[in-house]
Design a protein around this nucleic acid. Structure first.
Ligand SMILES: [Mn+2]
Ligand SMILES: [Mn+2]
Ligand SMILES: [Zn+2]
Ligand SMILES: [Zn+2]
Lengths: 138, 138
DNA sequence: GACTTAATGATAATGATTGTCAAATGCAAT
DNA sequence: ATTGCATTTGACAATCATTATCATTAAGTC
């Protein structure tokens, strides 16, 4: 099984490669939609590679901070994670089944940048997610 | 003091105009940035018009559902509310002091619509918020 | 004013996330 | 392979925003 993740980051100075972190990376590779920490923890438990809940939380947050996984804060406030492509992009997510499509648009990026500059904002970041019902769920 | 809110919605069938709801509407009018339910509850307490916390939660959620206030789910998962203009728009928010600028861009709306159609999604909605440091906080 | 029913609020319950800290372990050096 | 040690783990407690309860209060109507 190939882990679709840059373990390179995980192997940075002081960051150890543990079986727990590897297990989380595998789960993210196998699961394809955005999943909550609790769901990933449960998935690992059923899968046999049980990992402590706190560790799953810590690992997902680290991976997110390192930019190795995307995180979306759902409308109910829960954070969900997903292994994504390297480049900056956004998502079209089915609010019924979770099916996700990665989308990108240079125009949108430029617009966000332009707006920020105009108002003198610095250190900006933006979130842009589209939610709807996929063809199957419509 | 004029309450900058469409009480019309609040006066719909079965929805009563209570002093508590009026107080929340006033608080939203006075406060100008995005505020959490807890903050608005505290503001009302200090102001003298104490309202039960559960009631503030219920009122803000109703107003949000009615489209009378905008709600943003911050990165920490907490929901914050703000009285906004009628038209659909997005926000440029200072993550330090909360200073908010309403922004709109037809191009972005069209792009979101286009992407959705291309992938066969229906009943779509989107969120687009820009966070950064305002001139004062930079 | 009396009636009907929605609304309120004090409080308990829920549930995701974070904090704690003793025990386990990756790993670099020997 | 063994040692030394800082990092990591995990069971459990603690936090804290949000929701559920439900007896009491108060709009709105006649
Ligand atoms: Mn992605
Ligand atoms: Mn707004
Ligand atoms: Zn779907
Ligand atoms: Zn600011």
């Amino acid at each position: 099984m190939t882990i679709r993740i840059k373990v390179s980051h995980m192997a940075t100075v002081g960051i150890r490669t543990t079986k727990q972190r590897t297990a989380v990376a595998e789960a993210l590779t196998e699961l394809d939609d955005f999943r909550s920490t609790q769901e990933i923890h449960e998935y690992l438990r059923e899968r046999g590679d049980s990992v402590g809940l706190a560790t799953v939380y810590r690992t997902l947050q680290s991976l997110s901070a390192a930019g190795d996984v995307d995180v979306i804060v759902r409308e109910d406030g829960e954070s969900v994670y997903r292994l994504c492509s390297e480049a900056h992009h956004h998502h079209l997510v089915c609010r019924k089944c979770g099916f996700t499509v990665e989308v990108e648009g240079p125009a949108v990026e430029r617009w966000a940048e332009s707006i920020s500059t105009t108002h003198g904002f610095t250190q900006v970041s933006h979130t842009f997610e589209i939610f709807g019902l996929c063809p199957n769920c419509s």
